[in-house]
Design a protein around this nucleic acid. Structure first.
Lengths: 146, 146
DNA sequence: CTTATAATGAGAATAGTTCTTGGTATGGAA
DNA sequence: TTCCATACCAAGAACTATTCTCATTATAAG
């Protein structure tokens, strides 16, 4: 089992918080490294298998969120999806399928991202909102549902 | 009680679907007309008062969503907020407070919106995603939590 | 004013998630 | 190694937002 660069970064971050990088936590990180977008507990449970019981899976997700390793994403009713935090995955946006609800990561090239950031900053300043980040969701039909 | 232009539009839309514009439904629309952003069932319940019981409120929200009058919005775990659909309220974006979770509408001027739309179209096309809409959420601290 | 249909209200039921409890594993000190 | 303190884990109960059920009430059309 080769350890990815992301896993090494997670390991270091967890160590800083005196949190152990156990089997269950490793399994979640690996599943998310391989995924192409945010995944819910149920989706991760399928990807990982019965090796991590549901109650532990939720606790693992909570721990990884608290330590800043995972970021929550909300786009479907009553269901939280998680993805690797931006310091691990890089700033990106999302394609949301309005048919099946799946969310896919979207990497935006640097010049375009700078234009987006500039627009966002201008708009936020115009209403005196102290902006810390932005999220752009493009809605439409994914390849499967098209 | 003065009837707003939005209420008249809702009335017409509901009539087309053979759905009645009853007191409870009217109360929800009025609350959302006065609100400055998407509201959850619990938040609406506070705004409207006990005159609309919880079970009816949820059903009302479902009916208004099905008829295309309301649009759901997800930004907090396990909780759906609703706002007037874009054909009633116009296209807009959101300011999301990362402290209290409240969401506020953000009207963007036409030239800026066109720039955003152009960027989104370009990006979507570059990954062959059939885009139907986009949503920009600016995250930060609201006036209360700043 | 009757009648068919739609809507309502109260509470039971459900789904996703969180908490509790009792037991297990791990890393460091002796 | 052995012990201890501190995570960590598994199973199921509990919780919260939401949906469903069903008996009752309101509404519009004839």
């Amino acid at each position: 089992m080769v350890e990815t660069a992301i896993e090494r970064q997670v390991e270091r971050r967890l160590a800083e918080s005196d949190v152990r990088f156990t089997r269950g936590r490793r399994a979640v990180i690996q599943a998310l490294v391989e995924a192409d977008g945010p995944k819910s507990a149920a989706e991760l449970s399928v990807l990982i298998g019965a090796e991590v019981p549901v109650s532990s899976l939720y606790r693992t997700l909570a721990v990884l969120e608290e330590t800043g390793v995972l970021a929550p994403h909300y786009s479907s009713p009553g269901l939280t999806r998680f993805e690797l935090a931006e310091w691990l995955l890089g700033h990106h946006h999302h394609l949301v399928c309005i048919d099946c609800g799946q969310v896919e990561d979207l990497a935006v090239d640097e010049p375009t991202e700078q234009q987006i950031q500039a627009l966002v900053s201008t708009v936020a300043k115009s209403v005196s909102f102290s902006e810390t980040n932005h999220a752009l969701e493009i809605e439409g039909h994914c390849a499967k549902c098209a």
